[in-house]
Simulated assay, not measured.
Amino acid sequence: MPGLYLLALLASIVGVGLLDRRFRLALWRDRRTTVVATIVGTVFFLAWDAVGIATGVFVKGDSALLLGLDLAPHLPVEEPVFLFFLSYLALVLYGAAARVRAPREDAS
Rank of each mutant, 00 (worst) to 15 (best):
D106H: 15
A72N: 02
L86S: 10
T55F: 14
L10M: 10
W48K: 00
Y5G: 00
S63N: 01
V92S: 04
T33Q: 15
A102H: 14
G61V: 09
V16R: 02
R101F: 07
A54E: 09
Y94P: 00
D62R: 10
L69N: 04
F85D: 00
R22N: 08
L4Q: 07
F85M: 01
R99V: 10
P103N: 11
L66G: 02
L66E: 02
Y94C: 07
A50K: 05
T42R: 01
I13C: 02
L19P: 01
P2E: 06
M1T: 04
V57I: 12
R32K: 15
A8K: 07
V43N: 07
A97R: 12
R32Y: 13
D30V: 04
T33S: 11
D62S: 04
V51I: 11
V36C: 12
L10Y: 12
G15K: 02
G3W: 03
A8L: 11
V81R: 07
G15A: 14
S87Q: 02
V81L: 12
W28P: 07
P103G: 06
L69G: 00
E78S: 03
G3T: 00
D62M: 03
D106R: 15
L4P: 02
A8S: 09
L4E: 09
L27W: 14
Y94R: 12
L93E: 07
H74E: 09
G52W: 11
R21S: 03
A11W: 14
L6Q: 04
L19F: 13
R101C: 04
R22E: 14
T55L: 14
G41V: 02
G68A: 08
L7R: 05
T33V: 08
G41K: 01
P103T: 11
L25K: 15
A11D: 06
E78W: 09
R21N: 03
G95I: 13
R104V: 05
L4R: 09
G52T: 04
L86D: 03
Y94D: 09
A72E: 02
L66Q: 10
G95Y: 14
L86F: 15
A90F: 01
W48A: 03
T42F: 11
L27Q: 05
R104G: 06
P103I: 09
V92Q: 03
R24I: 01
S87F: 06
A97H: 09
G3V: 00
D70I: 04
L46C: 13
